[in-house]
C-alpha cells in the first residue's frame, strides 16, 4: 500500500516512502524534518501550513504527500539565500508583522505568490490575498505593511518607513 515518492524541497531532492493517506505537511515536518511550516487547524482554514508547490501557494494539510510526487516544493526554510533574507522576511521583521511567529511562515509563503502575480497590490487586494491565513496576534495591520514594504523592495522602489505610526 505504501508508495515511493520523489520531490524537491527547497532545491534538494528527497525520496520517501509514505502511506497514501499521509498529509504533505506531516511528511515535510516529520520525514524531511523541516518544521518551519505549521499545523493550526484540521479544516483547511488557518493557512499555517502554506508552502509553495511548483510556485503555487498551497495548504499542505489538504494535500496528500503522494500528490507531491515529482513536484518542487518551497518552504520557509528555503527563502533566505547566501545573500541574505528574502524581502518578505525582511519586511515582516522590519514592520513588526509577527508576534508569536506561528502563522508567519505560512503567511509569508502566501504573500510571496501574491506578489509574484500582483507586484503592486492595494491594501484591499492584500487583505483578500491573505484571507486564507489566520493570525491571532497582530491584527493584520503590520502584515499589510510588511507586504507593501516587500513589494517596494522587490521592485527596487523607494522603501516605505518602518517606524510605527503611533500618534
Amino acid at each position: 500500500m505504501k508508495k515511493n515518492i520523489t520531490f524537491k524541497v527547497n532545491g534538494t531532492e528527497h525520496s520517501v516512502e509514505v502511506e497514501p493517506r499521509e498529509l504533505l505537511i506531516h511528511v515535510i515536518r516529520e520525514k524531511i524534518s523541516m518544521t518551519g511550516s505549521h499545523i493550526g487547524c484540521d479544516t483547511s482554514s488557518c493557512g499555517a501550513c502554506t508552502i509553495l508547490v511548483d510556485g503555487k501557494s498551497a495548504k499542505s494539510c489538504t494535500l496528500l504527500a503522494v500528490q507531491a510526487n515529482g513536484k518542487e516544493i518551497t518552504t520557509v526554510e528555503g527563502l533566505a539565500t547566501a545573500e541574505g533574507l528574502h524581502p518578505i522576511q525582511e519586511g515582516f521583521h522590519l514592520n513588526h508583522a509577527l508576534h508569536c511567529g506561528f502563522c508567519t511562515p505560512g503567511m509569508m509563503m502566501r504573500a510571496i505568490e501574491m506578489l509574484e502575480k500582483n507586484p503592486n497590490p492595494t491594501e484591499e487586494e492584500i487583505r483578500w490575498g491573505i484571507a486564507g491565513n489566520l493570525c491571532r496576534c497582530t491584527g493584520y495591520n503590520n502584515i499589510v505593511k510588511a507586504i507593501q514594504w516587500a513589494s517596494a523592495k522587490m521592485q527596487d522602489k523607494e522603501l516605505p518607513s518602518t517606524e510605527p505610526e503611533f500618534v
Binding site: 518544521t35 518551519g36 526554510e77 533574507l85 521583521h93 513588526h96 509577527l98 511567529g101 510605527p164
Partner: peptide, 23 residues
C-alpha cells in the same frame, strides 16, 4: 526606542522551536 525584535530572526526563517517540533 522602537527597536526591531530580537526574537524575529528564528521565526521568519522557520527556526522557531514549538512543542510539536520536538522529537
Amino acid at each position: 526606542h522602537s527597536k526591531k525584535r530580537k526574537e524575529d530572526a528564528r521565526f521568519i526563517q522557520g527556526k522557531g522551536n514549538y512543542v510539536d517540533d520536538i522529537k
